[in-house]
Design a protein around this nucleic acid. Sequence first.
DNA 1: AACACACTTGACCGATCGGTCAGAATAATC
DNA 2: GATTATTCTGACCGATCGGTCAAGTGTGTT
Lengths: 221, 221
Amino acid sequence: MMADTANHENASRDRIEQSILSAAEQVFSQHGYRGASLQAIADRAGLPKANILYYMGNKQALYVRLLNRMMSRWNAVLEDITPESDPGQVLSDFIRTKMVLGQRYPEGSKLFAAEILAGAPFLNDYLSGELKEWVTSRAAIIRQWSAQGKMDDVDPRWLIFLIWSSTQHYTEYSAQVSGILGTQALSEADFESICQFLEHVILKGCGISQPRQLGDAPLNQ
Amino acid sequence: MMADTANHENASRDRIEQSILSAAEQVFSQHGYRGASLQAIADRAGLPKANILYYMGNKQALYVRLLNRMMSRWNAVLEDITPESDPGQVLSDFIRTKMVLGQRYPEGSKLFAAEILAGAPFLNDYLSGELKEWVTSRAAIIRQWSAQGKMDDVDPRWLIFLIWSSTQHYTEYSAQVSGILGTQALSEADFESICQFLEHVILKGCGISQPRQLGDAPLNQ
DNA sequence: AACACACTTGACCGATCGGTCAGAATAATC
DNA sequence: GATTATTCTGACCGATCGGTCAAGTGTGTT
């Protein structure tokens, strides 16, 4: 009908693949690689199990594809920092970006967490390669900030882990957080409150004067 | 032989049960409840599968028993804090206690994390009951500290989550941490360095003057 | 020796696992 | 309309799942 014959990778196929990926992300993130079943994924996607395998090949290929998709969303984070950057602005952005990523892709974040919990059998190369270099290069810049007196002389690796873990917590432990707060999900106000808390504590704790207090009235801008 | 006949719950049974619990903790923490198999647990414990079921009844009872054992290790944490306590000392102790717990029971900590990731099907009552009250009561005391001017006026719930997550990270994400650091496990020096970093950033970030700087020479005590 | 009782385990059960395949159904091309 | 290519799926496969059971071993009591 209105199908573009030249491009045989048509929209219908993409739509189905996306719905499979979405269903698989939920099941894998809840139960891990071993605990997830293709039948459960198929049921959630509303398709026969054989159809999942027709599109994705096998369980492992589907899982690896999900991991890659989640990791690609990480590529732009802290990409363009320099020794001349303002630490307060950069760390503040880092915290907010990480919080938003967790909010936008909760299942993907949990998928990542489950893979790490299992010992990272599919991500070992990525962790000790690409991600290790990412951390090392950022750590070097943070160390220069410390040397310039822009902030306290803290170990930048622990600082990166601190921001990662404290933000990750709100997606990964959403069941615990909402159980304790007594709410189903985080409200907009809670989300903003958490961001400001983390910015306040981490920046102040590193001896960085905050660029602006988001709760206060804007200075002049 | 040397068995105490009066106490028919003899040491042999306890020894076997402990080895089963230990094996099960490893398998459940890696693969979650669904992903763990009794056969894998039996293999790791060096027993036939039927023997596991003889001692533990069924898979769910074994799992719940492990969860309870891990939660009981938490009971003493932050048990005796009062509005008159010194925030710096209390939070410092909290950080170190949590780090030591994660170091001492890594599989138990991961087991807890996996249960939360799965949506806490077995822990929902605990989270929204016992643990919620634990957080609420501690939060009330921290709020009094803020009112007394002992520390900044931060949301105590976010502060508790911050300490929980940042310490939990080093056990739960041990695969990621060691992948990035390039070492198999955390060294004693790294462990101490992390504790000092967290104490420095969190206490300073909350506007608390640190009781003592562990890296420096002791003042006079 | 006889008995009681806790322990051990191979064999087995129905259900579900990941994955294959043949053929039906549908769509695209001529 | 005929032909080809793609998409779909029920039926099936061997392996493994959690769990049962009966027959066995061992040990202490009488």
